[in-house]
Design a protein around this nucleic acid. Structure first.
Lengths: 230, 230
DNA sequence: CACTGTATGTCTACGGTGTATATATGAGAC
DNA sequence: GTCTCATATATACACCGTAGACATACAGTG
């Protein structure tokens, strides 16, 4: 309500700065900086206000709530990215799209939290969706299946990136602890697994995308899977 | 520290109730009930204490922290499930495993939050991993690739289930709003998509699992994907 | 039986969160 | 110069997790 009326007033005057000192884009920039150095939950209205040099309540003149603020931050990040890459074939197209999304998440840890939860998803989340739907349709998938595959890709990419980015050592299982936890439970497969001491997230991402795209091809070719109806 | 010494004492005496009135499993049960009706973030030490009929600080005699409490709740849910199903082929095995995981998440909304974040993952999360690794190895995947596929499956299942379970209407895009948001942005593919007014989550889950398992077969068959190195 | 140690529960309090409400301030329009 | 109204502030509320000091009542020992 307040921001809209302000916008009306500003539109009447000039489209530049406001009457008073300074804000809005500054808040978003400060919020982004906060997310970059600490997690997404490090964004606090009080801390953010201090970073900008105002009182906490001043932020509410520009954002109706914390959620709206976070949404604006996410919007700022997402809308600046180029998810399309003008790639020749649909596989490269999808791969590029989610590589970009992933690197955004790694650059700004906590961004996945902003997108998935908090209901703070901004309008620009539809950009990667558009690119993906086009590519998948080109691959031969139907509308609904394309959307389903998009959600699968998003789930995978965001979750993995979130896990990698929010990598705080004191929560790490750390081989040692992991070994203790599974000891004596008959988890042969896990014990047998030669766990690398540093997980290769990049390779895992490539693997996942490749697997999914192979699955797309198989579905598009008409293989609807075959779990016996028991 | 306190709980362990209590356990030692109890083991010496009888394995039944404690000295005072009652707790521990009661807390877990109450926590589970809270999670079931409201989300995971509805679990608050004060609210939980009231539900059990004690003071908030009384909980700390049985759990060292809120995280430990949530972990115990998750453990209670996960450990009661049978992820193995003694299925004949690896596809049905994996399908069963994640169907169970998914239904747990739908029964107890907010459980995904417990598992993914908060670092509250209990020891029993390794049970589905064990089942999956065995099945995937049988499918012909290597150790690391099996682990990677497991994480892919988990990402997909938990994220989708979380989204479905935390379905609060006032956050829903709701066709109307969705249409407004994408209007005039050139999102042809999205606009063209005939979005069902009620998303079929079950079918989407089946689709995703099938797609992934098809991808597994393709990888196991030696198709490592082919994105041209541009 | 009484005694005592200790585990259990309570009370109070601290620093933190998001934000509703009322007030002061200062720039721009007339 | 005066008025208006968007902006920034001050204060306050309800809530959160939990640290610390204290009260209590049972368990084990004599």
């Amino acid at each position: 309500m307040s921001p809209s009326s302000r916008a009306r007033k500003t539109a009447r005057g000039a489209s530049k700065g406001k009457s008073r000192n300074l804000t809005r884009d500054k808040v978003i920039a400060a919020g982004l900086a906060l997310i970059d150095e600490a997690g997404a939950d490090a964004i606090t209205m009080r801390g953010l206000a201090e970073a900008v040099g105002v009182t906490p309540m001043a932020l509410y003149n520009h954002f109706s709530s914390k959620r709206a603020l976070l949404s604006a931050v996410a919007e700022n990040v997402i809308s600046a990215a180029d998810f399309d890459g003008q790639h020749a074939n649909w596989r490269d197209q999808v791969h590029h799209c989610f590589s970009v999304l992933r690197s955004l998440c790694l650059q700004h840890p906590g961004l996945p939290r902003l997108l998935e939860f908090e209901g703070a998803a901004p309008a620009s989340v539809f950009a990667p969706m558009e690119v993906t739907l086009r590519a998948l349709r080109e691959a031969g998938l139907g509308d609904i299946d394309s959307a389903r595959t998009y959600f699968l890709l998003v789930s995978f990419t965001l979750t993995q990136a979130a896990y990698q980015a929010r990598r705080v050592p004191d929560l790490e299982p750390s081989a040692q602890i992991r070994a203790e936890r599974i000891a004596g439970r008959g988890y042969e497969a896990i014990e047998h697994l030669a766990w690398p001491e540093t997980w290769d997230f990049d390779a895992s991402f490539e693997f996942g995308i490749t697997l999914i795209l192979n699955g797309v091809e198989s579905i598009a070719a008409g293989d609807e899977g075959r779990h016996a109806p028991s």
